[in-house]
Design a protein around this nucleic acid. Structure first.
Lengths: 165, 165
DNA sequence: AAAATATGTCAGCTCTATTGACATATTTCA
DNA sequence: TGAAATATGTCAATAGAGCTGACATATTTT
């Protein structure tokens, strides 16, 4: 008897019925990122650099004086992965390291003039893509896109991303 | 005299003055994609699969009957890159191939029940992230995000992405 | 003085992607 | 019909970017 009631009660919602996946967003994000990153990739090959070099240069330029540990945390990669590309960038004078003033164990990283120039070139290239995209969209599109992308991030990661201090 | 006038006329706009790069969007897209793709990565390692397997499975599930050439064009990778992951998926019975009815040279790909199940699990995982993100955003956010991401893509690529036929 | 921290480096491994060359089956075209 | 084009598969070699684990050095903290 209890069984019947239970079964009846459950019927209307057999299982919490997983909602239809958002295939549109999954696919669009995949394509958008692939094309976005492709712009930079093409330019980087001319310098014999890869994506990893780009990311390091980008963050050092955006957050000059960054420590190695902070950069590792931002990129979420390991020290060993970083070391190869960082070495390239140091050797070829795109980035320079200076000991921390407060803690001399730290190697704080700064972009050189050369590094700044390349970082800017890459950022402008990617911005042109965004500018083209936004040109065909209504007024608040840039702010809306930023809100969406920020919300998609790991909630925890937001505090770690640096410049909010 | 003409020189002076010219110089004066030019002063206000010295160079076309490249606009400030959109660092906000560059960074947000990087982080959003990294976290988004990370969800799937963690699940995939449990199956000994990588991102490449995921992409292939995803598109075969979404566009059953896809030919190898169409898949290569969608993913923008080479035949050789595809072959290894495709072999894994075929061997482990996530995907099956059937000769094309019209053109028997083609190997049209279809997901198996097993493949469908994994593809769905992955899509639901990534959709949960989007759902969480959209929960905190105003009404039209999903449509706006989709418009933005679509506009960021290579304009040329849009026709090639398949399902609009 | 001991412990913890910041960084660097060595060795070895995986996954994803690349290019180039070549083979086979099938379809299309002159 | 015979040649050319197409769809696919496969072999070999290579690169880029990431990983783990182990260990060394300098510096700071306790």
């Amino acid at each position: 008897m209890a069984e019947i009631l239970e079964r009846q009660a459950k019927k209307p919602t057999p299982e919490p019925a997983a909602p239809e996946p958002m295939f549109d967003l999954i696919e669009l994000l995949f394509f958008a990122y692939r094309d976005f990153i492709g712009d930079a990739d093409r330019l980087l090959t001319r310098y014999n650099f890869g994506r990893a070099h780009h990311r390091v240069l980008y963050f050092v330029e955006r957050r000059p004086g960054l420590s190695v540990a902070e950069l590792l945390d931002l990129l979420k990669i390991t020290k060993q992965s970083l070391s190869r590309v960082l070495k390239d960038l140091l050797d070829q004078n795109y980035i320079e390291q200076r000991p921390g003033l407060l803690d001399r164990r730290q190697r704080l990283m700064y972009p050189t003039a050369r590094g700044k120039a390349l970082a800017l070139e890459l950022a402008q290239l990617q911005s042109r893509r965004f500018a083209r995209a936004l040109a065909g969209l209504p007024e608040g599109a840039r702010a809306q896109a930023a809100s969406f992308l920020a919300a998609v991030r790991d909630p925890a990661a937001k505090d770690a991303s640096g410049d909010a201090r």
